[in-house]
Design a protein around this nucleic acid. Structure first.
Lengths: 270, 270
DNA sequence: TTGTGTGAAACGATTCACAGCT
DNA sequence: AGCTGTGAATCGTTTCACACAA
């Protein structure tokens, strides 16, 4: 999914494939669970099952990190936990800021999974003056005016944007100008960032739309026909080329059903 | 990202690549914005920029849907909005249930982006009896006991799981038994589902870990050395093969720093 | 002339299958 | 005897580059 730009071929120590990197946290989670149950070793087969991938893929993935297993035996759980944590950079502490403390921002602030993985919520920031000082997740919300100060004083390199779509680009630019080089974007917008900045996005409604696509397929052709028949005639889709609002009225009726705001994200700005 | 199993080669009308499907919502969002500004046509170049992809990819993607453009001119915005909406199955209304009304569940319930895209939150369900009846996003929370009834009465095929990790598998099984065939899983666990059921997962901490990986790279070799030196000697990583908690104590010190609960998701169950 | 639509080439990721180590 | 590690085959995705239509 939309990782920002450039993963500079320069400092690329040992090129671990992006697809592999994306699975390391999965393995780590499964390994942590095993570690808690004091399981000493796992086979690629067992671990793969726990992580929800197949064993060949897992072994290939691990082979990029080095040869951390023992033939005929399997992998040492604790050792692997350490190696993957180190590879992911989780042996150091990452202070993060969350900008936009609406519903979603608050949920993120309360998310236990961050703290448990080497991430520390250094500050909560919101543009609403009324929010300032209010405690969320045991931490006072700070005003956007102090964003730059907060970033630099805490040495923050990772920022989370949970603002409405309209504010995201501006917030992103300020974060970047202040020193942030990695952004997790929950706002439903494309963030434009300079080279050297990584962006990952999470869009809740996009995931649902992908599910809807497959769901529609499952329903078979009957359902598709029904849906098509609901609006216009099955064989007569909206006239193309007929630009402007005229054609749109009929065509987009069902499709562009939407609130007055178009693209409101999961936060309440005020 | 972890789409469930089988996309049955059987009913596969015109095989649209999965990667393309995953981008359709992106195009749709960009097109909707253009439509609101009453822009009649776009070139692949312009639309690609708005969606954050390159134009060759966009044209290839659209070529799987059919030839909806006009050479030398571009694409008719309204027409494309309709075609993509239809392809994604958004011309019909999808009732969804959200299970687990903690911080995250509440944020999802309030998310405007669902309603605006053909999804209707049919019910909010939580296991906590104290939550029952409480209004969240203008809708009373219902108790898990009624899950099956709610699913069938509303004809729900898509479920969202926002429960703690421990409850997710069980909730998933009940959803599926009741008729749900697509699940969006926010709980940090691997969901095991039978064939025919699609699962997509969103894991907030995984995204951050991926960012941390790249962030670590950016810091260069110096930072890596510092991190390694923090714990053990740079050249002496935790002894492997030394199974059990003994080796783990030193090895996982920084890595397995975690709350008492291990894997708590962004919800408060109680 | 402009910008789509698409074969063909390049690339990356996954799977296969088995040699090699314990 | 068992399980890792990995080349080689395969598959899917992206990019290139240009014929073709408006």
């Amino acid at each position: 999914m939309a990782t920002g730009r450039n993963h500079r071929p320069a400092t690329r120590s040992r090129g671990i494939p992006e697809a592999t990197v994306a699975r390391l946290p999965l393995y780590l989670r499964a390994l942590t669970a095993l570690s808690e149950r004091s399981v000493p070793t796992v086979s690629s087969e067992e671990l793969a099952a726990a992580a929800g991938v197949n064993s060949a893929k897992l072994r290939k993935d691990f082979s990029y990190l080095g040869s951390y297993g023992t033939r005929g035996v399997g992998y040492d759980v604790e050792y692997l936990v350490y190696q993957i944590s180190r590879e992911l950079g989780l042996t150091q502490d990452w202070p993060v800021v969350i900008v936009g403390i609406g519903n979603l921002g608050a949920a993120l602030a309360n998310y236990g999974g961050f703290a448990s993985r080497g991430f520390r919520v250094a500050a909560l920031i919101d543009a609403d003056p009324a929010m300032a000082g209010k405690p969320v997740a045991g931490m006072p919300v700070q005003h956007t005016d102090d964003l730059e100060k907060i970033i630099s004083e805490n040495g923050v390199h990772i920022g989370v944007i949970a603002t409405p779509a309209g504010a995201a680009q501006q917030v992103g630019e300020r974060l970047i100008a202040a020193g942030v080089t990695s952004i997790l974007n929950f706002a439903p917008t494309v963030l434009s960032v300079p080279d050297g900045v990584d962006v990952r996005k999470v869009d809740l409604s996009i995931e649902l739309q992908i599910l809807a696509f497959h769901e529609q397929r499952k329903a078979g052709e009957e359902a598709a026909a029904v849906a098509a028949a609901t609006g216009d005639a099955v064989t007569a889709p909206p006239l193309r080329g007929a630009a402007g609002a005229g054609a749109a009225a009929g065509a987009g009726a069902a499709a562009s059903r939407k609130g007055p705001d178009g693209d409101v994200p999961a936060v309440m700005p005020a």
